[in-house]
Design a protein around this nucleic acid. Structure first.
Lengths: 191, 191, 191, 191
DNA sequence: AATGAATGAGGATTCATTCAT
DNA sequence: CATGAATGAATCCTCATTCAT
């Protein structure tokens, strides 16, 4: 239902990814979605709201998938080893980035500070918090090296973004490379 | 005057970093630089030219510093171990990001595809090529793990960006963290 | 709406006539038409396009009326005497200039070289070609004096413009004067 | 003397002729003259003043040459036949337009209403008045046809402008054509 | 006198948003 | 719900003019 809304969110993601939020004009979204400009404003009160809707949809989905196996409550499975947790998260990230490359590009290769609202920022915080919790737990288990978990998350997540961006930019990066990378990044994390 | 051009480049960096290239209006740059709008156009033919000037200045300086010890010819010292080369590059990156945080943020946390010209793109290519060459050589020396060097560079550079971005976003990341991170990232790279 | 387009073409003619194409700012047209500036750009892609639309509309209408009696195909009635053809054309010109003085002033008292497009130039060529053909035929019939028909057309059309311009400038020139002038200009043309 | 002033008047004529007064930017004049923009303002207080200086120079010179033989007082030689007077004026016009085609184009193919000052307008009036006086006298002598002399002047001067414009636009119009035209235009004027 | 950098109002054009249909 | 014409503020850029050198 709300096929128009869906079309709009899809079109917006596409043009935001290509031109940046600030760099896209509302008529560009309308044209891409095949609707009139005015129609956008029946579904979203403003360009900013549309931007946040797109951001929340995808950042939220990514978070969901990352936290899914533990029931979506964003709690960590206490029995899972850090190695397994990392492997699972890496797979989820890879699957997400492979299935929705534009969405991942939009989320992670751009700067959103200028227009995100509280709700969007909350999802970011929850995402970081989850990753930090996983790393902390891994440290408690003695599987992950010592140090500020925020730093380790930043490094590991940054490494994943770096690889995805290279793939997105046209570098010949295949699934095998992502597997190898997983091992390398685990070496970055592990004790 | 030359001083005006400097002031403009400085102001443009500040405003572009904060608001994105597409998100900054030319008058914002003028105001920040303390000059009239028209003055900008005596020094740069267009907003796009100004954007490229800023980009080239900083990406170029970073490249220079990365390649400096070998004489600025962007050639690799054949006697240097991969470990040492990596350590030196990490230090340069860290020093650069610490001395010019806004410049690094502008360069690496944003998407520039929409307005960069050939010259700017060339600097990007040379930067990547240099890093790839360093990694390749490390692999030949048996110091760095096997795999596509492009992938390893993407991971390692991505990790550095991730950490810097965390620091820039306000996370309490100190010099010690960068040192620890250097070791962790070397573990990502090393055989 | 279509009415807005008409209002714009009317306002543009008025302002262009008074201030010259280059001398009129787009907001002047908007104000004269009673619409917002942005509205102009929903109907014409640029000031230049608006200028050409105005030019083509009026130069085209004049050409139409000049060539009308022979069916709009811009062909010359082979049975009409040159004297009659000239008289008819003079009347048409006079009627046109009397009914649309601003349009004639815009068309003929100004220089348009800087902004006219191919289509506009084509109408000019067709107008000249038609007049030249009429004169040539008159020469073949032995009614019009020898000499380059282009020259004769330039002289006769120039004379008409001169008279109209005088009238437009406020000189007390009435219909009787145009009738007398017709006879005088025929004396310029006739054998 | 005042070589710069001369260069400026020459450059201004050239660009005004090509682009129209309203269509030329002051820097274009400076560049054409090979001086800095600021220099213009040491010689002319404003663009408008420059425009009027150019206009007055050339319209004034044309008037001078037209009235010259009678001593520059713009009085008519009472002994000269109208035919001779017309022939002389036609020659002067032709010589002027041939020697200074750009000047004639600037003066007569454009609309100047928007920026001319009183002094410029005065020269126009004197030019018209002189031509009207010549025609009036020709009518008194019974050499020129009856009718408002203003109308006859408008027709004859218009015819000359028409022919010059054709030549200026690239039509192959030679001195012979101007001679033939003189005869034709005299047929327009003569009783 | 000459320069040309600087100015900021004004020019053409685009944009986010509204609203009558 | 959808439309797309209309709006006018805001955008990028240019212009006539000034002034320190």
């Amino acid at each position: 239902m709300h096929a128009t809304r869906e079309a709009l969110l899809g079109a917006a993601l596409a043009v935001f990814t290509e031109h940046t939020y600030a760099g896209t004009a509302v008529p560009m979204v309308a044209e891409r979605a095949g609707v009139a400009v005015g129609t956008i404003y029946r579904h979203f009160p403003s360009k900013q709201a549309l931007g946040n809707a797109v951001y929340q949809r995808w950042k939220g989905r990514l978070l969901e998938r990352l936290t899914e196996p533990t029931g979506g409550t964003e709690r960590i499975d206490p029995d899972e080893s850090a190695r397994a947790a990392f492997g699972r998260m890496w797979s989820v990230m890879h699957a997400f980035a492979a299935e929705h490359p534009a969405a991942f590009a939009f989320l992670e290769y751009q700067q959103h500070a200028g227009y995100l609202d509280d709700q969007s920022r909350q999802i970011i915080e929850r995402s970081t918090a989850f990753a930090v919790a996983v790393v902390s737990r891994g440290q408690q288990r003695g599987e992950i090296r010592a140090g500020d978990p925020v730093v380790l998350v930043a490094l590991a997540y940054g490494a994943f973004i770096g690889l995805s961006k290279a793939a997105w930019s046209g570098a010949p990066v295949g699934p095998k490379d992502f597997q190898d990378a997983e091992i390398a990044v685990w070496d970055l994390l592990r004790r």
